[in-house]
């Protein structure tokens, strides 16, 4: 089996071959590689730029792999900011000995995903580190998009909170895929590009206040951040939050809270109450938004807290993920 060697990263012949045969061949960015930097032209509007690094384990999981994740993750960050994704760059850190066939699969799915979304992969970089200095492969992507009509986060009491589908699928899928717990599920990651769904939604309503993709830290952490950033009180209704039964079962077993599990293909929309149904229909018209639901309401525009109304009728305040799961019961 062909494997990555240190020479693949030294800028010499082997490196050249890797770039030409793998990256350029798949990403089709020959138009951009004549200079040390890619030159892009912008028509109008504002430039949006974001970056993210991907270190997922395992590299391949039901519903995706690290490459797909690296493209959709960055594209989604652009999309939820109201930008139309245009181009991304990618940096690879490879561990000496990494199978080239795996790299190929990863690169292929990056290219596929980029093409599907209509973004160009315009620049890249590869470094190889000694065996043991990294865990297989790390990918960094930076994305650029154009914002034509920026979102105006002017929240009002009564605004609706919508989630585009069930939460926690990615988190539990990854957990199960690691195989270390023996957790059996038929789940797949929700890993998907959100820009098509988002453009449907933004076409349907001009009153979308904000969008977020609840990745690391999950739905709860993403909403807590919105609440704090914009001084809102949002009340979620626990019953209304779509959670797959398998996710719920796994959470029950592991003692996890699905509201804190990562998602890679979900969007939170906060939208004016009157446009709630329009946006919901727009999202539901896409396959990845079939299970979209209204999950909460903006209760006040001055407090900065996220509340969860339980089926028992009690209300609990939610905080960001702490990473500390110690019982509080005495």
């Amino acid at each position: 089996m062909e494997r990555i060697t240190l020479a693949h990263g030294d800028g010499g012949e082997l490196a050249h071959q890797l770039i030409q045969q793998l990256f350029v061949a798949h990403f089709h960015h020959d138009a951009f590689v004549k200079f040390d930097a890619a030159l892009l032209s912008i028509e109008k509007g504002k430039l949006a730029i974001t970056t993210d690094s991907f270190v997922v384990k395992p590299l391949f999981f039901p519903g995706g792999n690290i490459g797909k994740l690296a493209v959709v993750g960055t594209v989604n960050d652009l999309a939820v900011s109201g930008a139309i994704p245009k181009a991304i760059t990618c940096g690879f850190i490879l561990e000496e000995g990494f199978p080239i066939s795996d790299l190929k699969r990863i690169v292929q799915s990056m290219a596929e995903e980029a093409q599907k979304i209509g973004v160009a992969i315009v620049a890249g970089d590869t470094k190889v580190v000694e065996r043991g200095a990294a865990d297989g492969i790390y990918i960094n992507t930076t994305g650029i998009g154009i914002v034509e009509e920026p979102l105006v986060p002017s929240f009002q009491e009564g605004d609706s909170v919508i989630i585009s589908g069930s939460v926690g699928d990615h988190g539990i899928t990854i957990f199960a895929a690691r195989g270390e717990l023996g957790l059996m599920t038929n789940l797949t990651s929700d890993c998907a590009a959100l820009s098509p769904m988002i453009s449907q939604a933004t076409k349907a309503s001009k009153q979308i206040r904000i969008m977020r993709d609840p990745t690391r830290g999950g739905l709860a952490t993403a909403l807590v951040e919105i609440c704090e950033d914009f001084q809102l009180t949002i009340e979620l209704s626990e019953d209304a939050i779509p959670i797959k039964r398998e996710v719920e079962g796994a959470c029950d077993l592991l003692g996890f809270d699905p509201l804190y599990l990562a998602n890679e293909g979900k969007v939170i929309f906060i939208v004016a109450k009157e446009d709630e149904q329009k946006v919901l229909q727009a999202i539901r018209s896409r396959e990845e938004g079939k299970e979209a639901a209204v999950i909460g309401t903006v209760r006040a525009t001055e407090k900065g807290q996220l509340l969860l109304r339980t089926p028992l009728g009690t209300t609990r305040r939610l905080y960001r993920l702490t990473g500390l799961l110690l019982p509080r019961i005495c």
Partner: peptide, 9 residues
Amino acid sequence: PLPGGEKCI
């Protein structure tokens, strides 16, 4: 260990 944390209660 308390497997599952607060679930143990």
